[in-house]
């Protein structure tokens, strides 16, 4: 017994080293930078200067909330419908959902530019039919579309997994006890898929709230989200690393708080669905 425990610890060793180098050290550095100035003296000025980024914070959160809600509204019915199909069709749809994830994130976003641009596919089509071209690119709608498109798989996978794990006899039992379709969804299916919903929301909300590339490419340079601000600050030079770190730290704390709130929903039911 002892030997195998020791063995396990030895096997886990690379993981601890990996975690130390790539998670713990950067975290410590981030905290260190956020409470010092460029010459290494302790300061809280970085935090005091965050006021001018409040709009970016607010915007990021708004966009993230909206795109999370939309991905949920797409993913939930989709997963539900999928479980009603033959297994082979379910696999097929799942493949189609996952497939875009194999493509590079930048390319996926770029392809939306060519679809939405003023002389892009949609507008060329409209013009050829004699309509006025629409302003699609560089709008908040385009940003949200990009986020929904990019992060949808992260919502579908955990919800679909939770949904397909529901024992059909539970659904029959709820029929048997008098539930119509809506009551069945509300009283049985939703509570049983809640852990999946929570994972999905977390997995979409976190990257959405910190995203930077999508907003630049699809939103033009008008909208600065918090991710863009951090990227910008890191790009203009070492003097701005400190404020950028502070922003990252605050964003991280925000995300942790929202995850903690989300997880409260599942505390009463059982363990979350982890993918």
């Amino acid at each position: 017994m002892k030997n195998s425990a020791l063995g396990r610890r030895i096997i886990a060793c690379p993981y601890y080293v990996w975690a130390a180098i790539f998670i713990i050290v950067p975290l410590i550095m981030m905290v260190y930078y956020s409470i010092t100035n460029p010459v290494g003296e302790f300061t809280i000025d970085n935090f005091l200067s965050l006021g001018k980024y409040s709009k970016a914070f607010l915007l990021s959160i708004t966009y993230a909330v909206i795109s999370t809600i939309i991905t949920f509204l797409i993913a939930y019915p989709l997963s539900y419908a999928m479980t009603k199909l033959k297994i082979s069709s379910q696999r097929m749809i799942l493949m189609m959902v996952i497939f875009p994830m194999w493509m590079n994130f930048l390319i996926r976003t770029y392809s939306w530019i060519s679809i939405l641009a003023n002389t892009g596919i949609i507008n060329n089509f409209l013009v050829s039919l004699g309509f006025e071209p629409l302003k699609l690119i560089n709008t908040p709608g385009a940003i949200i579309l990009g986020m929904v498109y990019d992060f949808l798989p992260y919502m579908v996978l955990p919800i679909y997994t939770a949904m397909s794990k529901i024992d059909t006899s539970l659904l029959e039992a709820s029929d048997d006890l008098g539930c119509n379709g809506w009551q069945k969804l509300k009283k049985v299916i939703f509570p049983l898929t809640l852990p999946g919903v929570v994972s999905g929301i977390t997995m979409v909300f976190v990257p959405s709230v910190s995203t930077f590339y999508i907003s630049q490419k699809l939103g033009g340079n008008k909208t600065m989200l918090i991710g863009d601000a951090i990227e910008y600050l890191f790009n203009i030079g070492p003097d701005h690393y400190n404020v950028a770190s502070t922003l990252s730290l605050v964003l991280m704390v925000l995300i942790l708080i929202s995850m903690a709130i989300m997880n409260r929903f599942t505390d009463e039911t059982d363990e979350g669905v982890i993918i």
Partner: peptide, 8 residues
């Protein structure tokens, strides 16, 4: 046959 009780 396998009770089908609601686990939640």
């Amino acid at each position: 046959q396998r009770y089908a009780l609601f686990p939640h």
